[in-house]
Design a protein around this nucleic acid. Structure first.
Lengths: 239, 239
DNA sequence: CGCCGCAATTTGATATATCGAATTTCTGGA
DNA sequence: TCCAGAAATTCGATATATCAAATTGCGGCG
C-alpha cells in the first residue's frame, strides 16, 4: 500500500517505515486535525479497506493509540474515541503546563532566527485558516506552531509524552476554535509567543506558552459548561 | 492459554482480559523485576512458545511496550531492550521527580491507617529480600511500595505516565540495588516515607519521595560511571 | 589464524481464515 | 406503534501461512 502524509506531531520515521507505523501516523494526523469526534467508533476492517491495507497493520496502529490513552476499548471490546471528562481535561492541562513550560524554558536559548521566521509564517497561515473557518487546518497549524518550539528543547522524553497528551485532547479540541473564533482574542496569544521566542527570554517564552494553554483550557471549559453531559438535556439538532 | 500473574505496576484489567493484555502484564512484570537486561533481544516466536500463545498477542504486547518507549526496534527491525544513556536516565528522573512529587502531595491527605500498616509490611518484606540479595523481589517490592502511595493521589494520567517511566528504567535498575546494598543506607529512605505518610504531611511526603528518587539516581549514576561505555574497555568476564 | 562471502536459518511484518461474542436487523405479537 | 426475541451480520481477537530482509554458520581463501 501507499499511505504517505506527515503528521505535524509525529514526524519521525519515514524511510523503510512499517505499514503499521504509517497507519499510526495517518491516524495521529487525523486526530490532530480534529477529524475524529468523541464517542465515534473505530472500525478496523473499514480502516484497512480505506487505507488499502489489511487488518494487521491497522490493528497494530489502533492498539498503539489505545495504549497511549488516545483511544479506548469499551467493556465489550469496541474501540472508540473517548469522551473526556472535565477531570481528565483538567489533568491533561496540568501535566501539559508542567512539561510544556519546562520545554519552553529549555528551548528559548536554542531558538534560531529561522525558527522565528518560521513561526511567523506558520502564524500567518494559521490566521488565514481561522478566517476561512478551516478548523482542520487551524488545529494542524496550531500543533505545528507549538511543536516547532518544543523541538528546540532537546527534551525527547517530555516531547513524546506531550505528543500523546495532544492526541488525547485532539478529538475534544475540535470544539474549541469555533468558540475562540467568536472572541477573536487568539492572535495576541501566538504573537506573544513569537515575541518571546525572538527575545530568547526563557521565562517570557514559558509564560507566553502557559497563557496560551490557559486560554485553550478556558475555552474548552466553557464548551463543556454549555454542552455539559449533565442529567437530561439533549442537543437540538441531530436529535 | 493461561498466563495469570499480576504486575505490581499494572494491576488493572483481569476479568475477560485479552491475551495480548495478559502478555503485556507478564512482560511488564518481568521488566519491573529486572528480568530483562539492556541490549537483550526479544524474540516474538520464542515468547509465544514459552507463554503457550501465538505470535499475534505477543507481538501486540511487545509493540505496546515499544510504543511506550520501554522496548525499541533497531534500524533493522529487531526488538531489543534499550540501553539507557546518561541523558535519558537524567530526563526520566527529572520527569519522575515532577510527577511523583505531585502525586505524593495529592496522596498525603488520602492515606489511610491501613495504607500505613501495609507500607510497613511491604518494607519489612523489602528488607528481607534485600538481606537475601533477592533483587528480583526487591525491585518488585520497591515498585509496590511506591505505587501503593501514588494510587491514593487519584491522578490517573500522572500515574499511567509514571508507570511507563518505571518500565523504561526497569532494565537499568537491576544494577542499582547491588550497589546500594553495600552502602546499606536504604532503610532510612523508605522509613522516612512511611513516617511522612503516617503524618499525612504533604510536603514531608513529597520530600521523602524525592529524596528516595535522588538516591536511586545517584546510585545509577555511580554504576554508569564505573561501567561507562566509554571508548574501549571491556568486561572482564563473559568477554 | 583471521577474514570474506554464500547458503541455510531465523525473524519481524503482513495478509488472511476462523471463532465466539456483540450488534444489528428482522419478525411476529400485543 | 412498540417491543421482545431470534436470526443474520459485523466485529475484534487469535492462530497461522507466507514473504523479504536480517542473522548466523560454514567453508575456503589469503
Amino acid at each position: 500500500m501507499t499511505l504517505i502524509e506527515q503528521s505535524p506531531i509525529n514526524d519521525m520515521l519515514t524511510r523503510g517505515e512499517t505499514l503499521g507505523g504509517q497507519v499510526y501516523r495517518w491516524l495521529a494526523n487525523a486526530i490532530t486535525a480534529g477529524s475524529y469526534s468523541p464517542k465515534e467508533r473505530i472500525n478496523i476492517r473499514r480502516l484497512a479497506d480505506e487505507l488499502r491495507s489489511s487488518v494487521t497493520p491497522v490493528r497494530e496502529a489502533v492498539l498503539r493509540l489505545v495504549a497511549e490513552g488516545v483511544l479506548e476499548t469499551t467493556d465489550t471490546g469496541a474501540i472508540i474515541v473517548p469522551e473526556r471528562t472535565q477531570g481528565e481535561i483538567q489533568e491533561i492541562f496540568e501535566v501539559r503546563s508542567a512539561l510544556e513550560g519546562e520545554m519552553a524554558l529549555a528551548a528559548a536559548p536554542n531558538i534560531t532566527d529561522e525558527d522565528v521566521k518560521n513561526l511567523g509564517s506558520i502564524q500567518s497561515s494559521f490566521l488565514d485558516a481561522l478566517d476561512q473557518s478551516d478548523y482542520r487546518e487551524v488545529l494542524k497549524l496550531n500543533a505545528i506552531f507549538h511543536f516547532s518550539i518544543y523541538k528546540r528543547a532537546n527534551l525527547p522524553l517530555r516531547l513524546k509524552i506531550v505528543e500523546t497528551l495532544w492526541l488525547r485532547i485532539g478529538p475534544t479540541l475540535r470544539y474549541m476554535y469555533p468558540i475562540l473564533h467568536k472572541g477573536r482574542s487568539d492572535h495576541r496569544r501566538h504573537e506573544n509567543i513569537i515575541e518571546a521566542a525572538a527575545s530568547r527570554d526563557p521565562n517570557a517564552l514559558r509564560s507566553a506558552i502557559l497563557l496560551d494553554l490557559a486560554s485553550s483550557q478556558a475555552a474548552l471549559h466553557q464548551y463543556l459548561q454549555d454542552h455539559s453531559v449533565l442529567p437530561r438535556r439533549r442537543s437540538r439538532r441531530n436529535g
